[in-house]
């Protein structure tokens, strides 16, 4: 079969290209003698990650906790609101347009307002994470719950499915691919929300560390913090993709990803 070799090359090529880019970066920084404060070499970043892992980890946990908490609340709230929109005509007509239009508001710009309202604490950070992660989750879940085609509903009615049965046996499984697409968008946005709120006002977290090291002109530490953040984000996204593959077993993952991004 051609499948395994194609799969191998889809993994091997990105790895090879990434390794090449990192090697090129390393070579150029060394050959031109670029100062670490401008651009540290990859090897320097790795060295700092190891040497200062305590600082990095101490600041990673608060960010990670907030991100996961904000994500979970967004998913729960998003699905709940999506159900209201799906099943309540009044709610759909009244709120769905607002939710869609609110998508164009650059929500992180509201961060300073949240500080006025909630102070410079965890609540403020959490609220911003939820604010940015909630709406894409809601919209994707609505798409999922409402995208069942008419034929399926006709079939379900013909065989005497009750509304509850139609929800659990048809609407919910049908919505799963969209819900996972929404979760993938939400997790990346929750990270952004947390980091931005930590830029604005915080005494801990990766966002705070990035801002602090920028002020100290400690570029290698800043790059190490960004790398740690990226790896954490990648791991969270990977966990969701893994759960998706198990839950949406009837659909190849490529098709599902196309639904949302």
């Amino acid at each position: 079969m051609a499948e395994p070799s194609r799969n191998a090359s889809t993994v091997a090529w990105p790895i090879a290209v990434t390794a090449g880019l990192l090697a090129g970066w390393e070579v150029i920084v060394r050959a031109l003698g670029v100062r670490p404060i401008i651009l540290p070499a990859p090897s320097e970043i790795v060295r700092v990650m190891i040497a200062r892992h305590d600082v990095l980890l101490d600041n990673l946990w608060p960010s990670l906790t907030l991100t996961v908490l904000g994500f979970l609340l967004s998913v729960a709230g998003g699905i709940a609101v999506a159900l209201l929109i799906t099943y309540s005509r009044a709610f759909r007509l009244g709120f769905y347009p607002i939710i869609v239009v609110s998508q164009v508001v650059p929500k992180v710009s509201i961060a300073p307002l949240f500080i006025v309202w909630f102070g410079t604490g965890l609540v403020s950070n959490l609220m911003l994470a939820i604010l940015v992660a909630f709406f894409p989750m809601t919209i994707n879940a609505v798409m999922g719950f409402t995208s069942t085609d008419g034929d399926i509903h006709k079939m379900a009615r013909a065989f005497m499915g009750s509304p509850a049965q139609i929800f659990w046996k048809i609407r919910l499984p049908n919505a799963l691919p969209h819900i996972f697409a929404g979760m993938k968008i939400s997790i990346t946005l929750a990270i952004i929300g947390v980091i931005v709120s930590e830029f604005v006002a915080s005494q801990e977290g990766i966002g705070y560390l990035i801002k602090l090291s920028s002020g100290l002109l400690d570029t290698p530490l800043m790059m190490a913090a960004i790398t740690v953040l990226s790896l954490a984000g990648l791991a969270l996204y990977g966990l969701i993709a893994l759960a998706e593959r198990r839950a949406v077993y009837w659909q190849p993952p490529a098709d599902v990803g196309a639904g949302g991004g």
């Binding site: 034929d151 399926i152 006709k154 079939m155 009615r157 013909a158 065989f159 005497m160 048809i170 499984p173």
Partner: peptide, 16 residues
């Protein structure tokens, strides 16, 4: 819809 009828549609509409 009733229990003593069975319906076959133009599309199979199986749940994937």
């Amino acid at each position: 819809p009733r229990r003593d009828t069975g319906v076959v549609f133009q599309a199979p509409v199986l749940l994937p």
